[in-house]
Amino acid sequence: MLKCLIFLWVLLLSISCFALDVQEWPDIQDGIISIKIKEPLHRVGYTVGDKSERHVEITIKKPYVLIKESLPIPGYERKYRGQDLGIVLDAMKHELKENKTSSALIMDLTYQIFTNNVVAKPAFLPAEYIRVLNPNDPQKKVFKYRIPEYQIVISPLSIFGAIKIEQDMSPLRGVFFIDEKNPMKTLKISGIIALLSLFGLVYIYSQYAWLLGVRGIFARTHRSINKMKATPASTEKAITDMHHAFDLVIGKTLFSDNRHDLFAKNPSFKNIDIELDEFFKLSTLVFFNTSNKQCDHSEILKWLKVFSRHCRDCERKLIVDKKSLVSGLTK
């Protein structure tokens, strides 16, 4: 008995849901809702697979509000006189803007054609319904509003079905245009990449490249040494800065006897080995020599400027001209 009652209750519940689903709502009275539609550019020439877009702007006066559940649902198969329409809402984007007097619903509806015919056939982008209600109405009565359909024409792919297109080159038919937008975009991007790659290759193989490494430690040190004036303090600072730069490059203190670590990090420095040798002798002379040997600071600084430039070039993996190397300063 209990089972029978439960079955009856479930049956009634399902019938009531169905009743809700199929019930008819009255149309909203004029003047409450206004609509603007931007229709597709062309009405004819649609065939299977094509997409068509409608831009719809609906204004709903207050106190009426949109029932969001009534918005069109993509993917619904539509029927017309019991037959599949063959046009499906493929995508729907919407935006709801509220202000004091009204609310604006903006929708982009994209339909896709899934039908074709051997001759031109009238069809339409189907009408859509939205529902509104007045929240102040104690009965909460719901009204519907119809977005009108849009008449289009489905065109055959070829006349009377599948024939060889080469035999159907009627001069009356328009020229088939390929959409060049995307290929042109790809072509432009490829061109820019090719051009940048070319610049990159030229840069890598050129001797006087300067863009990359402009913020390298030796580039900074060279700039700072270049601004120095020949004083004993400047000479000491320049040598200390160069030591510091070398230390940063190899991640530890560089001395004359662990130059191989520098060469391992950047083999370009091998080209200026004789200047490195000179640099360490100079450093020893300036900092550690306690004899009264006088140093020509202007000569030392001049040499350091050249040396720091060579180090900067090595940092940029450039080949330093061996003829430009200077040694023998400390003799």
Partner: peptide, 8 residues
Amino acid sequence: ILQAINAP
């Protein structure tokens, strides 16, 4: 130590 301490 020798690697970490810089001179000068």
